[in-house]
Amino acid sequence: MEVLDRYESIVDDFAAFTAACERPLPSAVRVNTIKTTVERARAALDAEDITYDPVDWYPGLLKFPDDQPGTNWPYFHGWIYGQEEVSAVPAEVLDPEPGERVWDACAAPGSKTSQLAALMDDDGVVVATDSNLGRLSALRSNAERLGVTNVAVTHEDARNHSLKPFDNAEYDRALVDVPCSCEGTIRKNPDALDDWEYDHVKGISGVQKGVLRRAVQATKEGGTVVYSTCTFAPEENEAVLDYVLEEEACRLVDFEIPLDSVPGVTEWPGGEDGTGGGDQSGDGTADDDGPREFDPSVEKAKRIYPHLNDTGGFFCAKLEVEG
């Protein structure tokens, strides 16, 4: 958990933050409205005496206060899908409508792909991209169990996503839920920080910038792009937004979510321990990983800390494409 100490300067009530990170998170499912209704899924769980707590802001999200339930009929029928509460946020923020073209840039294993399809009433197209064939195979079988018929799956590096298979049609909306250092999943995976490395954070930040940039390029003018991670590192969050605001015609926009959150940070000391990288190279300027100031509009992004709503950690931003 020492890794998280680097965020002491940006998290209010840091003690509550670390205490929350140490508490295990109950498992949760999302009801798949492509195959059933929330009422019937709940009745089917009741019939098997499985206890659940509905999440107040999302009627189809059900948390299991006891152990994760074993095999059950609603699961077999593709009526429910394991998905954590904060993981349901970005698709809600993207808010796709039936009939639209939507890109899910880093789609496997398909939690958000199938949620997008359900929000669209399985009408329109979700192009689901991933670079890993094994994970794509999981996405395919998840989407099939959930009965999704409006998903086209592509195997490629999202940074070089091609619009050619579909006659260069641009997207109405894109979800960029990137691979990240996953610090915010610590309550679900207690070993999530075991392999944490500063170099990995900096390296993956480059991939994230490339994917977000491609999503802005592939989305129509006036279209919406949502960027999200399950990590706290500003290198993977505000720094990525700052980069794309500089490089592409887009802007961050305000949005509401039904969970408590704090604004994105505009300043970050940087460095492995979060106290600044300084000018170790001695050339009179701050090193790349030294203190940073970000575009002031990154305050429109939202940081969801585990202690705010008793969830996992999450970061979410909404962009409008201008060019």
Partner: peptide, 16 residues
């Protein structure tokens, strides 16, 4: 597949 696409199309999956 719900909807339509150019044919042939080179993808890993198209609908179900």
């Amino acid at each position: 597949f719900r909807g339509d696409a150019p044919s042939p199309v080179d993808v890993e999956g198209l609908g179900m």
